[in-house]
Design a protein around this nucleic acid. Structure first.
Lengths: 217, 217
DNA sequence: GAAAACGGTTAAGAAATCGTTAAGATTTAG
DNA sequence: CTAAATCTTAACGATTTCTTAACCGTTTTC
């Protein structure tokens, strides 16, 4: 049975959703404001989050930023494109404007749960292990803190560690996280990653392929 | 670069989408009706499909049912929940109603393409194997390092190894990588490639066709 | 048969790319 | 609002790659 966390300050919407989704055999958990949601998310594992953006204490976007390994469907009264794009960029998987239709919500929930059957394992290469928390890299059992961009770059390199990835493709793949990153910026990030790796290993893990891009080595 | 197939009978929408998505560095393919789309999908690999439901000959839903390993975003004028739910149930990954906002579409495209890589097959000819994803050339199991231009030239020759390719056409095809390359420069590159091949094989792989261009031999 | 065009090789100078650093701008956290 | 962290920009030297131009032998043209 799939476990869905509803984060929403309006109690009547909670009730409607709970009644409907329970009938569809989902297990429902409730949070009525942001801090509460973060606490629950720290302690428990959910299969999906239904998130209202307009929360009293904490901005809903904060939750999107924090949650990385659980699909999020945003439910919001904001209909503007900017709001939608922002949420999706931040990491949300879908966006529905209120008032929404329950059948459509159900269908979209199923889409998210369908593609979620294979949770991404941590990426490993030689003595490197990139954890799923979006900023930690293990090298010879040493924890290395990576910035958001460094993590995104290393992740792309580690997905296919033997393949060369062109600079343009790399920039494109990380463009959601860092839209302003260009080739110059990229080489600085690569340099910074190498510097961090050098602390715990003399091996050169990132190899430049002249004129093309980079690969693991 | 990601390859997007647009399936849509309205030509003006094609143009709008192509112009916008090309600017965002996507490669666009077009299909104007269902059968055409199915043919293309059989022959080619796409990273994403933008699908209009109201196709003249074939129902768009047929395409959703057929496609299994490529994410689909449905673009439709149908706003009814039943239609949306049907599509999502059938296997679509997202659903946008016309008229849609291009920025929102882009954000939703990126959600679907997140951390998606597509391996490309290698080009083989006799004892040569050009590994696309590794950006290296194998000759009798020896790894040969090629420069960007050398790689581009050899790739074009190997795509149709039995056909003669004229110097002008060759220069045109690699002009994206090396805009300054002329005939003189080309023959130097060919010479350099031959020199590298000579190290591991006595065979002459690149043959000059007098007055025309080059072919594999 | 002589002149012109073409193909192949070579070497040197020009151009592009990489890696690093530091400073300024921007974002994030407290 | 301030301080810290992160990102971008720009410069530099080192290295690799590319183009240019010369030379020579072969093929084509006249």
């Amino acid at each position: 049975m799939n476990n869905i966390l509803i984060v929403e300050d309006d109690k009547s919407i909670h009730n409607i959703l709970e009644e409907f989704l329970t009938k569809e055999h989902y297990q429902i958990s409730h949070a009525y404001e942001g801090q509460e949601a973060l606490l629950l998310l720290e302690k428990n594992k959910y299969d999906l989050i239904l998130l209202d953006l307009m929360l009293p204490s904490l901005n809903g976007e904060e939750i999107i930023r924090t949650v990385k390994d659980t699909p999020i469907i945003v439910l919001s009264a904001k209909v503007s494109t900017i709001d939608k794009v922002n949420c999706l960029k931040l990491g949300a998987n879908d966006y529905l404007t209120k008032p929404f239709n329950l059948e459509e919500l159900l269908a979209r929930i199923k889409v998210q749960l369908r593609s979620k059957t294979n949770p991404t394992p941590s990426l490993k290469y030689k003595n490197l292990e990139l954890l799923n928390d979006y900023h930690t890299l293990l090298l010879n059992n040493h924890k290395i803190n990576l910035t958001k961009t460094e993590y995104a770059i290393l992740k792309q390199l580690l997905i296919n560690p033997n393949e060369v990835i062109s600079k343009n493709k790399l920039l494109d793949l990380i463009s959601l996280d860092t839209p302003d990153c260009d080739e110059n910026s990229l080489k600085v990030h690569i340099s910074n990653i190498r510097k961090k790796l050098k602390k715990y290993s003399s091996q050169n893990y990132i190899e430049a392929v002249w004129g093309i891009g980079f690969k693991m080595s």
